[in-house]
Lab assay of single mutants.
Amino acid sequence: MFYPNSPQTSPQLTQIPYGQQYAMMQRQIQQPYHPFATTEPQARLYPYHYQGPIQQEQGGFITQQSTAASPQYVQMRVTPVDQSIMSGYPNQTANGSSSSSFNYNIHPQQQQQQQQQQQQLRHHAMPVGSVPLQDDRYRKQLIVNYLAPDVTSTDLHELFSRFGELDGARIIYDKQTNMSKGYGFVYFCHAEDAKEAVERMSGYEFHGKWLKVGYSTNPLNIVPSNSSPYVHAGSRGAAG
């Protein structure tokens, strides 16, 4: 039997160049792979992502010199942007860049009308829970959420009447099932009393439920100042 490094198959040491006398086997001759043993700084910083320098080929596509990437890492192929796409944008300079302001050559009167329309939209648009300043009635009506099913309009009136005089209180019921929808409205005579009720009743436990109280901004629920107070009856038909 002959071994790869046996004296019968191995040459004389004098015939082997210096430095390879003890590297006779194939696994010894093959050098191990060192990912950080390279002179390129990109490979030292990113050993798993770097795959060699990027070269520009004919046709405008950018390719990489090395083989496919590892399945664990996804390499994105980048193509140059066609400058003709950006030619339609206004205020574009000769080098292809555009300024931040756009001039669509709008007539001054049209621009003024658009600004007025935007101001009107901001004036009428009102986020949930906010209180408008032009109508004091919005500051007097509250919406009470997360009410228990057994709470009546009379219970709601008695709960909030300790903060001040009320114009009314009612629970909203479903017309088909005649069941409470879980929320109601309270109408105060003074805005200061309503503000105190919002601050003190939010998070209050009532009939096993934690109440959420806020201003009601729905104009359909506003009680006119010259109208008669609501009837605080315990029956659902009268309260709904």
Rank of each mutant, 00 (worst) to 15 (best):
P219I: 01
H207T: 01
Y215K: 00
Q51N: 13
Q117I: 09
N103H: 05
L159R: 02
S84W: 15
Q116I: 14
E57M: 15
V186Y: 13
N226T: 08
L220G: 02
M86C: 08
L45E: 13
T177I: 09
L121Y: 13
Y230K: 04
C189G: 07
S70L: 14
S99D: 09
I62D: 09
T152S: 05
L133T: 05
R162I: 13
Q109F: 12
V151K: 01
A194W: 01
Q15I: 15
A169C: 05
S228A: 07
E199A: 12
G182A: 11
S87R: 09
P47A: 13
G19L: 10
N103M: 09
M86H: 07
S228V: 07
T177Y: 13
H157N: 12
Q42L: 13
I106Y: 10
E205P: 08
F61E: 04
I16V: 08
G234V: 04
S70Y: 15
Q21K: 02
Y73M: 15
M126S: 04
G203Y: 02
S10C: 05
I85E: 01
G182C: 15
A125H: 05
R139A: 05
G129T: 09
Y230R: 04
H232E: 06
E158W: 15
Q12H: 12
A239Y: 02
V144R: 00
R200A: 04
L133F: 15
P11N: 10
G52P: 09
P80S: 07
Y204C: 03
E40R: 03
R27K: 03
Q114K: 08
D174W: 01
P149Y: 07
E196H: 15
V144A: 00
H190P: 04
D150S: 12
A68Y: 08
Y48I: 11
F36A: 03
F163W: 05
K175G: 04
F160G: 02
Q72D: 08
P4V: 12
K195L: 08
Q119T: 05
S216Y: 00
T154L: 04
S180V: 10
E40T: 12
I171E: 01
L13K: 04
E199H: 05
M76I: 15
Y89G: 10
G234P: 10
Q83P: 09
T39V: 13
Q119C: 07
A23L: 14
S235H: 02
S235K: 07
D136P: 08
T93M: 15
V223E: 03
F185K: 00
G52R: 09
S225G: 07
L121K: 02
D193L: 01
D155L: 07
I29S: 06
Q118I: 13
Q92R: 09
T9Q: 13
G164L: 00
S180H: 10
D136L: 08
Q113F: 14
R200G: 08
V78P: 05
Y18V: 05
D167M: 02
M179E: 06
P132A: 09
D136I: 05
I171D: 01
G182N: 03
V78E: 03
K175T: 03
I54P: 05
D136W: 02
S153T: 08
A23N: 12
F2W: 07
Q120K: 07
T177D: 07
S227V: 10
R139G: 11
A169E: 06
A94T: 06
Y230H: 05
P90F: 15
Y46Q: 05
E196C: 07
V223K: 03
F61P: 03
S87C: 15
G168S: 03
Q8D: 10
Y18G: 12
N218W: 00
Y3A: 04
I29V: 05
K175R: 14
Q141N: 00
E165L: 12
Q21V: 14
V128E: 10
D135F: 07
Q21P: 11
P4D: 03
S161P: 12
Q117W: 15
S66M: 12
Y146W: 00
Y33I: 12
N91K: 09
S87Q: 12
T152A: 10
Q120N: 12
Q110N: 06
E158V: 09
L133Y: 03
R139N: 02
P80R: 12
G60S: 07
S153I: 07
N145H: 04
I16Q: 13
Q134F: 14
Q31Y: 14
S235M: 01
Q42R: 05
V144H: 03
A233Y: 11
Y187K: 01
P4N: 08
F102V: 04
P47Q: 14
P11Q: 12
H124C: 08
R27F: 15
N91L: 13
N221K: 09
P224C: 07
G164D: 02
P17H: 14
Q115N: 10
S70V: 12
G214V: 00
E196M: 08
Q56C: 05
Y183F: 09
S99H: 15
L156D: 04
C189P: 01
G129H: 07
S100D: 06
V151C: 04
F36H: 06
M201I: 12
L142S: 01
D150F: 12
Q72W: 15
V198H: 03
Q134E: 04
P219M: 00
S235F: 02
L211P: 00
V131N: 10
Y183T: 00
C189E: 01
T177R: 10
P80I: 10
R137A: 08
A238P: 13
S6H: 11
A69N: 09
F188D: 00
Q110I: 11
Y187A: 00
Y73D: 01
Y50A: 08
Y183N: 01
S66A: 14
R122W: 15
I29W: 14
S180D: 01
Q75A: 08
A148E: 01
Q56T: 14
Y73T: 03
S161V: 14
T63R: 10
T93H: 08
P132D: 05
R77H: 11
N91S: 07
Y187G: 00
R200D: 03
Q51V: 13
T217R: 03
R200Y: 14
Q56W: 15
N95V: 09
F36W: 09
V81P: 03
A23W: 15
Q109I: 15
R236H: 03
G184K: 02
T38A: 08
Q42Y: 07
Q8R: 05
G96I: 06
A43M: 09
Y46C: 08
I172E: 00
E57G: 10
V223N: 05
G240E: 06
V128D: 11
A43W: 15
P132T: 04
Q118S: 07
Q119M: 11
F160E: 01
P108L: 12
Y73G: 04
L147N: 06
G88T: 06
G96V: 07
V198S: 03
N145Y: 02
G164F: 01
S84F: 15
S84V: 14
K195R: 10
L211V: 03
K140D: 00
M201C: 02
A23E: 09
Q112E: 07
M201Q: 03
T39F: 12
Y18A: 03
I16H: 07
G214L: 01
G234I: 01
G60H: 06
Q64L: 15
S227L: 10
H157K: 13
R162G: 08
Y33F: 09
Q65M: 14
Q111E: 07
Q15L: 15
S100H: 10
A197H: 06
C189Y: 03
I143Y: 00
G182H: 04
T67C: 08
D174A: 02
Q134G: 05
Q51H: 13
N5P: 08
I16Y: 14
F188M: 01
P224F: 11
S235G: 08
A194I: 01
S66D: 08
T217K: 06
Q119G: 10
T39Y: 10
W210G: 01
Y146H: 01
S216C: 00
Y138P: 02
I62H: 06
N103C: 12
Q141V: 01
V223I: 10
Q15P: 06
T152W: 06
Q176E: 12
Q113S: 10
Y18T: 05
G164W: 03
A194K: 00
Q30H: 02
E158P: 14
P53H: 13
